[in-house]
Design a protein around this nucleic acid. Structure first.
Lengths: 240, 240
DNA sequence: CGTTGGTTTGATTAATGTCAACGCACGTGG
DNA sequence: CCACGTGCGTTGACATTAATCAAACCAACG
């Protein structure tokens, strides 16, 4: 099933007709290479990009060369609905691995928004993105490095699970330790030390870009993770 | 003019009819006292709250007693559109000073969303909230304490200016130093020291809950502030 | 087999948090 | 109208954490 359909269906059950409308809305689909940017800060994209396969990430470069990663995007996620208000993107979006992307024209997006149920689901998905940013704020500013990493892993696990990409508490995590650090406000060395501790305490294995949660319960407990803010109730219950 | 009308009009010019529709959408308005909560984490509000006068703030309490402030709300801002997806709020909203609040029933909100132009403006205002959260992430994790405070002040200044509440680069800032710290991830002592440095370097005055930017240019320069993410172009150009 | 990007390790430095006390200003009640 | 109490702001000494620096190691890939 089209990942966008699957995702929106979680928020507002869609009719067969609406599903078809969504799945056939792409002007075309394209392939993107790991490491390349889908959209660059300062430009105004001509299409809305929907991630169909692979991971992407929102980020912002700072004057001093620092990078802040502000979101991870998984299959079904919209990259740049921002197109509607922006003269120029206020951040960039890059690919963490080879990916497939669906392109929506601005008009196609407007048409989708005109459909009450789809429009509402799109609105809700934006609210979830918003709630996620807020949770990241609390996570990065109020928890110590150990808890921070654990919390991020819990979130990614739940989100990957919701789209059916988790097997036996194990999933692909196409991130370097430096990228993890740029996400939660740690330097790569600190990230490394946290990971080792997580391994030593038998909570995870991580290697070859694959993460396994050996003890989800304990990870949830130590990080104070509450999936509440992801509002994925339905999809979670479907898959677990 | 109704602050919500003023705000949405910035995103998508509204007809006289649409303005009336908006301004008369409130079921009623209520007063709220400084220090009280409008909405509490875990509950599901019966109405959507629109801030008409005063400041509010989104926050989350953590198990260890810490508090993270995730947004400041000013006149015209919607507090809890989240009502649509939430079984329960994932954060609380409190008042920083005595305030006036407009109440929208869920149905009234749905009716507003059905109006294409208003619905779109509401959607866009959500996107701006989202962009603001992301900017806070970058600000709090990638800048040093001095730059962080300066950046926050620049944002509040621009937003207050956009709704006409700035006079001679001076505006009401109903925050304690502890609250500032809970916003940008600093302890109150560090906030205090940053403020003193900002004063010593002739960039601000702050007292009696009123902030004056003595040297906006320099504040912008040192913090790397770029109002881009607020997408307020029209309203700014109107007032400056 | 060499190169490259990523990970791991230890030593050191610098920044921020913590603790504790004091002071100031405002509002309250005697 | 004055005295007291409380909340917030300010200050200094100190502890702790995480950043930085530098080097070695490892695994994948050409």
């Amino acid at each position: 099933m089209d990942p966008l359909v699957a995702k929106l269906n979680c928020f507002a059950p869609l009719s067969a007709e609406e599903r078809t409308l969504l799945a056939s809305a792409y002007e075309r689909t394209i392939a993107g290479a790991a490491g390349s940017d889908i959209v660059t800060e300062g430009e105004r994209p001509q299409h809305i990009h929907v991630l169909l396969e692979g991971w992407a990430y929102r980020y912002k470069m700072l004057p001093d060369g620092g990078r802040q990663i502000m979101a991870y995007l998984m299959p079904g996620d919209l990259c740049d609905v921002h197109i509607f208000i922006l003269k120029a993107m206020d951040h960039s979006i890059g690919l963490l691995c080879d990916a497939r992307i669906g392109l929506l024209t601005e008009q196609a997006m407007l048409d989708l928004l005109d459909n009450p149920r789809i429009g509402r689901a799109l609105y809700l998905s934006t609210l979830v993105d918003d709630a996620t940013s807020r949770e990241w704020l609390a996570n990065s500013l109020r928890r110590d490095p150990f808890e921070r990493v654990a919390h991020l892993f819990c979130e990614l696990w739940v989100r990957m699970n919701a789209i059916g990409l988790v097997e036996a508490d194990s999933f692909d995590l196409p991130l370097t330790q430096a990228e993890l650090g740029d996400t939660i406000g740690l330097n790569p060395v600190s990230v490394n030390r946290v990971l080792q501790r997580l391994r030593a305490e038998q909570m995870i294995t991580l290697g070859r870009k694959r993460l396994t949660l050996l003890d989800p319960k304990r990870l949830i407990a130590i990080s104070g993770f509450d999936p509440n803010y992801l509002h994925l109730d339905k999809s979670i219950s479907t898959h677990r």
